[in-house]
């Protein structure tokens, strides 16, 4: 049975590494074993990050430190290390996609937001591909990103979509900044922040302004024959898919349609449609590149110590207005307020 708070390297592998590993790997493995023995309780996000620092060398500011693993269709994490930063690219599309998409996400956070990796301190980016059998998901487990290959009928490999890779990495950023709880409204904000940064990373990489962008999440994931265009639409939440296998996109775009449910951790992937749509409206109203104005306001808000881990939509909206005023002045702050108002949030 795997524990949810297992170290990044499974204990039996650490043991083998400690006995047989090459010099630097050997000392790292011994280090992790002794640390793990101290942590029988669930580890905080910070503690997990420091474990990554101790086991995977980080990089100088401006460059990522990427480590790509292959799970070989098992569910043991992180799997076999197949590519390190600067290594020769393998003839495996998912390994290359994960490596390149993590690089593009790193560049966005560094070049646009001035953040050196997930924790701001150069933490290594760990990604595992070929996770599980026909696995239709990608996730962040508190230490690393994990990508399934999809089943080929509904979903293609999850590394194909840069916005999805960026979405998962952003979960790491959120855990290490605002630490928004993964339930109800704070959880929907957590999800929305991952979509917002996911979509911006894609727009930045493609050089698209707000009118050129498709404002879709995971458009590259759906296999041919699925009746849908993406996993979510920020411009028109609730319209991404309507398919016999997937059902109908349940996202609301306005507080009037807020979904009260205990399903999906309290609708975190459902009600995220509301702040997603607010971001879209605000970015469209401001024009130009999403990351230059709206994106800066969102990043300022995410990293503001006043953003509580149990923040509600209204709290988040209030802080975006404060940061809009502070960084860009009254005109931009009014556009931000109008965007929130149009989704039913605000005074």
């Amino acid at each position: 049975m795997t524990s949810r708070h297992a170290p990044v390297i499974p204990p039996h592998m650490l043991d083998a590494l400690a006995r047989h590993g090459a010099g630097h790997l050997k000392s790292r493995a011994q280090n992790t074993l002794s640390i793990d023995q101290q942590f029988r309780q669930p580890m905080s996000a910070r503690a997990k990050a420091s474990l990554i620092h101790q086991n995977y060398p980080d990089s100088a500011p401006g460059a990522p430190a990427r480590y790509i693993f292959d799970a070989n269709h098992q569910t043991r994490l992180p799997g076999e290390l197949v590519l390190e930063e600067g290594g020769a690219l393998l003839d495996d599309p998912q390994v290359v996609e994960a490596y390149e998409d993590l690089g593009a996400t790193y560049r966005f956070f560094h070049d646009v937001m001035g953040r050196h990796s997930i924790d701001g301190e150069g933490m290594a980016l760990l990604g595992t591909v070929h996770y599980g059998q026909e696995y239709q998901n990608a996730f962040w487990n508190g230490e690393q990103m994990v990508f399934g290959d999809g089943d080929g009928e509904v979903f293609l490999p999850f590394t194909r979509a840069l916005d999805v890779v960026a979405h998962e990495l952003t979960h790491g950023v959120t855990e290490l900044t605002a630490g928004l709880e993964y339930r109800d409204q704070p959880g929907a904000l957590n999800e929305s922040i991952s979509d917002v940064f996911g979509v911006m990373v894609k727009q930045y990489a493609r050089g698209e302004d707000v009118t050129q962008a498709d404002w879709l999440i995971g458009a590259d994931l759906l296999a041919e024959g699925v009746n849908g265009k993406a996993l979510r639409s920020m411009s028109a939440p609730g319209t991404a898919y309507d398919d016999p296998m997937l059902g109908k996109d349940p996202q609301p775009a306005h507080m009037d349609q807020f979904v009260n449910t205990r399903s999906d951790n309290g609708g975190v992937h459902i009600n995220s449609g509301i702040p997603n749509h607010a971001f879209y409206l605000i970015a469209m109203e401001l024009g130009g590149n999403s990351w230059e104005t709206a994106g800066q306001i969102w990043y300022d808000t995410l990293t503001d110590e006043r953003l509580a881990s149990d923040a509600q939509f209204i709290d988040f909206a209030g802080l975006t207005m404060a940061h809009a005023t502070q960084r860009f002045g009254q005109r931009v702050a009014e556009a931000v307020m109008n965007g929130w108002k149009q989704v039913g949030i605000g005074p």
Binding site: F155, H167, D243, N265
Partner: peptide
Amino acid sequence: ITREGGLVAAPGLM
């Protein structure tokens, strides 16, 4: 029993 959550979180997958 349902299976929930995940990046996709589509109702048809529950």
